[in-house]
Design a protein around this nucleic acid. Structure first.
Ligand SMILES: [Mn+2]
Ligand SMILES: [Mn+2]
Ligand SMILES: [Zn+2]
Ligand SMILES: [Zn+2]
Lengths: 144, 144
DNA sequence: TATTAAACGATAATTATTATCGTTTGTCAA
DNA sequence: TTGACAAACGATAATAATTATCGTTTAATA
C-alpha cells in the first residue's frame, strides 16, 4: 500500500462512514487485486496470507459493508436459494435490488433498447444485466 | 387429477426414466398450479395439505429430478452463494449451465442480436436471460 | 404374484451465513 | 496527546438451506 492508495482508501472509508482499520484496508487491496468472481472463502484464504489471525466473520462483515456502500458489487442479485420457475413461457425478469422480488416480463414487452424508466407494475429500471446461458468450452468437451 | 393429466404425467415420467409415485404426481400438479417463483419450503407447505406425511427431503429430491429432466426450470442459474464482482467496468456474463462457471463479456462484444453460436473462449450460447435491475413499486415507496 | 431397484420418511450431517459477546482499536473532542 | 466511547475485531455458537444416510415401503416388470 503506497501513500496514494492509502489516501484513496481513507477517502473511500470517509464517504462510507467506515473506520479505517488494518483488516479493512488489506481486504480492500486484496479484492482490488483479485479477478473474476471470488467467494468469501476464497477471499478469506487470500487475506489470511497477509493477516493470519483474521476471522472469517470479519471478512463476511466487511464484504457486506463494501457491497452496501457500493464499493464493490455482488455478482448475482437473485435469491441465494433455490426457486422453481412456474412460468413455462420464455420470459425475462424484473429484479428488485432492494427486496429481491422477481417479476416476469415478456421478451417483446421488454424492448431491450435501453428503455430505462417505468415498466409494468411501476417497476423502476436502473440497469440491465444479461446472462448468456450455455456451455463453456470445458463442459462441451465432457458432453462429447 | 383427471385421466388426461394422469396419462400426460405418466409419459413425462417415462421420458425422464422416473417411477410414477403418488408423491411425485402430486408435486407435479402442485407446481403446475403454483405461480411465480416458489421456494422448496413454500412448495412443501402447499403439498403437505394434500399429503401431510410427505417429507421435505422428498420435495427437494423430486424438485431436483424435475430440474434435471427439464420438466421444470430453476429461476437463477447463478451460484447459490455470495460472489464478489472484481470487474468494475460495466459488463455482462456468460454462464455455463453445466458447471456454473461465469465469464465476463463486454456489452458491445455481446451484440444482443440473437447471436446464438460461438462466443469468446469457445462458449456455446443457448439462450439469453435478461435481468432488469431496479426498484419495485413497493420499495420505491419505502425510500421516499 | 415374487423379485428387485427405486423411492420414501426420518433425521443426521454439511455448508454457508449470521448473531453473540467479550476484548481491542480507531475517532474525535478536550 | 489523551481519554471516552463507539466501532470493529476474533472466537465461536446459532441458524438456514440443502444433502446424505439408512431402514422401510412401493412401483416396475417378468
Ligand atoms: Mn419467471
Ligand atoms: Mn463479472
Ligand atoms: Zn422491492
Ligand atoms: Zn462449464
Amino acid at each position: 500500500m503506497n501513500a496514494v492508495e492509502s489516501r484513496e482508501f481513507r477517502e473511500v472509508c470517509k464517504r462510507a462512514g467506515l473506520a479505517v482499520t488494518h483488516q479493512r484496508q488489506v481486504l480492500f487491496e486484496v479484492l482490488k487485486n483479485m479477478h473474476g468472481h471470488p467467494s468469501p472463502e476464497e477471499v478469506y484464504a487470500r487475506i489470511k496470507r497477509r493477516i493470519p489471525s483474521i476471522s472469517l466473520a470479519t471478512v463476511y462483515k466487511n464484504i457486506h459493508l463494501f457491497l452496501e456502500s457500493g464499493i464493490f458489487r455482488e455478482v448475482s442479485l437473485h435469491h441465494g436459494s433455490l426457486r422453481v420457475e412456474t412460468n413455462s413461457k420464455p420470459h425475462h425478469h424484473l429484479v428488485c435490488t432492494a427486496c429481491k422480488a422477481i417479476f416476469d416480463i415478456d421478451a417483446n414487452e421488454l424492448g431491450l433498447a435501453e428503455k430505462t424508466g417505468t415498466l409494468p407494475g411501476g417497476f423502476l429500471a436502473q440497469r440491465y444485466a444479461v446472462d448468456v446461458l450455455g456451455l463453456c468450452a470445458a463442459c462441451q468437451q465432457k458432453t462429447v
